[in-house]
Amino acid sequence: MPRRTDGEYLAFVRGRVTALRRAAYLLCGDSHGADDIVQETLTKLYSRWSRVSHVENLDAYVNTMLVRVFLDERRRGWWKVALLDWLPERATTPPPVEERSVVHTALMGLPPRQRAVVVLRYLCDQPVKEVAHILGCSEGTVKSQASNALDRLRLVFDELPDAVTVQDRR
């Protein structure tokens, strides 16, 4: 008998899909991509559900899985190739670039690993030690990546009047 039930899974997931989509969207910058990452993370979680009862901090566990899915997909993406010159369109197209915020665009301008550091450290409020664990690098690397990322973001943000910050808040 599973030590965690389907009912507990549903209760856990339904309360967190929004936050997981948010984190995935910050990482990959694309609604559909974010949903794919969350879908795969939750599928993995469910397939292990009966075995995770000893995990004390389930949220941290799931966040780690989510970031690993994102980075694995990016890494594997190098191998993943489609033949056609087009990609299937989804039912709804994303908003045009100009409707996206300056902050969003700046974040997406960071390379994937730097972006993961920024998202985990500043937007998911994970401590440096935890970020290092999730990303498989040293705490020093996390600090230097965060510092480099913020330097790059400052180049963009320093051009912004403070008012833009407010406009970005939708």
């Binding site: 997931v13 969207y25 609604s31 949903d35 879908q39 979680l45 912004l160 910050t165 970005d168 808040r169």
Partner: peptide
């Protein structure tokens, strides 16, 4: 300041969710 601005980011994906929880269970 860069962190403060980052945290103003509208962080919900603009499109409605297509995450299918039932399917995570079926596939799981």
């Amino acid at each position: 300041r860069a962190v403060r601005i980052l945290r103003t980011m509208p962080d919900d994906p603009p499109l409605p969710s297509t995450v299918d929880v039932e399917r995570t269970m079926a596939e799981g």
